[in-house]
Amino acid sequence: MTPYIVRRLASGILLVWIVLTLIFLAIHAIPGDPAYQLAGGDSGVTKEGLEHIRNGLGLDKPFLVQYGDYLGGVVTGNLGTSFSTGQKVTAAIGSRLPITLELISCAAVLSIIIGLPFGAWAARRRGWRDSVLSGVTSIALAVPVYVFGAVMVLLFAVTWHVLPAGGLPPFGAGPGAHIERLIMPVVTLSLAFLAIIARMTRASVGETLRQDWVRTATSIGYRPNVVFRDHVVRNSLNPVITVIGLEIGTFLGSSVIIERVFNLPGLSSLLIDGVTSRDYPVVQGVVIVISVLFVVINLIVDIVYGLLDPRTRQR
């Protein structure tokens, strides 16, 4: 197992380097002069003033030197300084990232603990249960997250006054208020993910149940519940884990809308603010963090593959 993990880590590091390089090239390909934007877009700014700003940003250095400084800053945790606030980008991300990770983690856990059993149950029982699963998950996938979030705010916050509409106080300031304000964002974000997991689990378990070895195990005396729980479900998990890994990565994109709808001070809202103000260091830093998180999530999925299926390690 150790050589397999080492190989996956090596490929993950290579992929992170490629992603970082692409981000650097993309940021430098954006039209416009960062120094001019930092000067406020004032046409009256002098040429000497622009050169002074470029010198402070390191934009007057050769391209490869800038690239080396960029990689060195990423490795040491120095992602630059925000153009608009003057705050260190690392500090800004550090204050926002826990909120986004908490939102994504809670939504992922909720989706998995409901979607997996629901999908396996529907695949085993079939009949009307399968029809109910298909109908509910189709509706969940058809409704955009921002529509569902707006409806939840309208019903639970505005009409019934059951839950607060938005905001997220620190957990230490009041655990009850923190959890209460997290309910609607988590449910909204997890709805489509739950539906995808349930449908994928249903399809994978249903296919496994049709295998000859399942009928053989039951016919020679193994209890059906044991065969289903210990063998069928486990052998059906690989495609489900693939979907889980990919969808958790897409959570980072969906959370942009959720954080806006529910006014959460997370990482995604920081990215939108940076794009709006053309704050290149902030945009670059947030994209780096999101990309690295996506690579790490998929690396964890690969390692879980190896734990569940020895054939994966051998290949």
Rank of each mutant, 00 (worst) to 15 (best):
I5T: 10
R8A: 12
S11I: 00
L15F: 12
L15A: 14
L22K: 00
F24H: 03
D33Q: 10
P34R: 07
P34T: 09
G41I: 06
G41D: 03
G41C: 06
D42F: 12
V45W: 08
T46I: 05
L50N: 02
G58Y: 12
G58A: 11
K61M: 11
P62C: 05
V65Y: 02
G68R: 01
Y70F: 15
G72D: 05
T76L: 14
N78A: 13
S84R: 08
Q87L: 12
G94I: 13
R96D: 06
E102Q: 14
S105V: 10
C106W: 05
F118P: 06
F118V: 15
R126V: 10
W128G: 11
R129K: 08
T137N: 06
G149C: 06
V151T: 00
V153Q: 10
L154E: 03
T159G: 02
G166K: 01
G166M: 05
G167F: 06
F171C: 09
A173Y: 05
H178K: 02
R181V: 08
L189R: 00
A195S: 05
S204L: 02
T208P: 11
R210T: 13
V214I: 14
R215S: 13
T218Q: 13
I220C: 04
Y222N: 12
N225R: 15
S236M: 04
L237I: 08
N238C: 00
V243T: 02
L246Q: 14
E247A: 08
E247S: 14
S255D: 01
I257Q: 08
E259Y: 10
E259C: 07
V261M: 08
G266C: 09
L267Q: 05
T276K: 11
R278Q: 12
V283L: 03
V283H: 04
G285R: 13
V286R: 06
V292N: 06
V292K: 04
V295P: 13
N298Y: 07
D302P: 01
I303L: 14
Y305C: 02
D309Y: 04
